[in-house]
């Protein structure tokens, strides 16, 4: 009963509040969280704080968890000016609901984003979860200058990036050792093969290749051979990767706030093409570096060499 009551109460709030905003003629956007809390909330906090700091007339922001979303209400005059979907499920549900509102997807993978673009529908843009390949290979060059052979394992979701990955590696005169797999069962032998041929392994997000369980074995196999792994998240560094370049949800919040501010003032609520994260951090596992006898420059130096933009407070 309590659930029913609270749902009714929330529906009433949404119902009454939307016309109210319209009446005040203040821009109104919705931030739709795949789930409450955690990284989603971290994004929302960064986003709202940066929006309020950057804009004299910030739009009103409704932070709505997906379970409370009422897509059918977001039409016509009740529709928000824009929706920022946070996470894969929020993006997917919004896509399925076919909401005709400019949408910015954050915390989504590039492959997921591209799979939900209808022809002729330019409403949805995104900030990808992934880092651009150039940035990742730059990291390898900075922290492993002696490595010339880099291994990658690709799966069905990342196979499409093979060309881009090869280009980025070739530009930096790195020899790439690629192993493609199509079943999670082949991950272990692929790790062994790639580690045997490489001086560094770049972990690439692909659910068929790297689950938390299989990541453990990649790290283990590579470490036993003295081969450093470059991860794609902070978690990989904590677990034993040598280093990662990654973007925190809060940093994505900052970038999203800037895109929303631009859309509001400059482009008439269009977000433009999807982009890679602009802000990023670098993490190096110093214990692993020492154990592998690698001399890695300080985090700040690496970050500076990667041309990370400053985030003003």
């Amino acid at each position: 009963m309590r659930n029913v009551r609270s749902t009714i109460a929330l529906a009433l709030i949404i119902f009454f509040s939307c016309p109210l905003y319209g009446a005040l003629d203040r821009e109104h956007i919705v931030v739709l969280l795949s789930e409450e809390g955690g990284a989603y909330r971290e994004f929302a906090d960064g986003f709202v704080s940066r929006l309020n700091a950057d804009l004299a007339d910030p739009p009103s922001v409704d932070v709505v968890p997906l379970k409370d979303a009422r897509f059918d209400k977001w039409r016509g005059s009740a529709a928000p000016r824009a929706i920022v979907t946070v996470g894969t499920r929020a993006a997917q549900e919004t896509y399925i609901a076919n909401v005709a509102v400019p949408t910015l997807r954050v915390l989504v993978a590039r492959a997921a984003h591209e799979s939900w673009n209808r022809p002729g529908n330019n409403n949805a843009s995104a900030i990808f979860l992934e880092q651009p390949w150039d940035r990742q290979f730059d990291l390898i060059k900075r922290i492993l200058p002696a490595a010339h052979h880099v291994g990658v394992i690709l799966g069905p979701a990342s196979r499409q990036d093979a060309h881009e990955i090869k280009r980025a590696a070739a530009q930096r005169e790195l020899t790439l050792h690629v192993r493609e797999i199509s079943r999670a069962d082949d991950a272990g032998s692929a790790f062994t093969d790639v580690v045997a041929d490489s001086e560094a392994v770049l972990a690439i997000p692909d659910p068929v290749v790297l689950s938390p369980n299989s990541a453990k074995w990649l790290l283990y196999t590579a470490y036993q051979r003295g081969i450093p792994v470059i991860g794609f998240s902070r978690a990989y560094v904590n677990a034993g990767a040598l280093g990662s370049v990654y973007t925190t949800p809060e940093q994505i919040g900052f970038q999203a706030a800037r895109l929303v501010a631009n859309a509001m003032h400059d482009t008439g609520w269009t977000f433009g093409p999807a982009v890679y994260p602009e802000y990023f951090s670098v993490a190096i596992n110093r214990s692993v570096a020492r154990s592998l006898r690698l001399e890695v420059p300080a985090d700040e130096d690496v970050l500076r060499k990667l041309n990370a933009p400053e985030v003003s407070p």
């Binding site: 795949s34 955690g38 990284a39 996470g87 894969t88 915390l107 989504v108 993978a109 492959a111 997921a112 799979s115 979860l129 992934e130 979701a157 990342s158 997000p205 692909d206 659910p207 790297l210 794609f232 998240s233 978690a235 990654y246 949800p249």
Partner: peptide, 8 residues
């Protein structure tokens, strides 16, 4: 495709 869970 990968999801935010893979990264976070």
């Amino acid at each position: 495709y990968a999801t935010e869970a893979d990264f976070l």
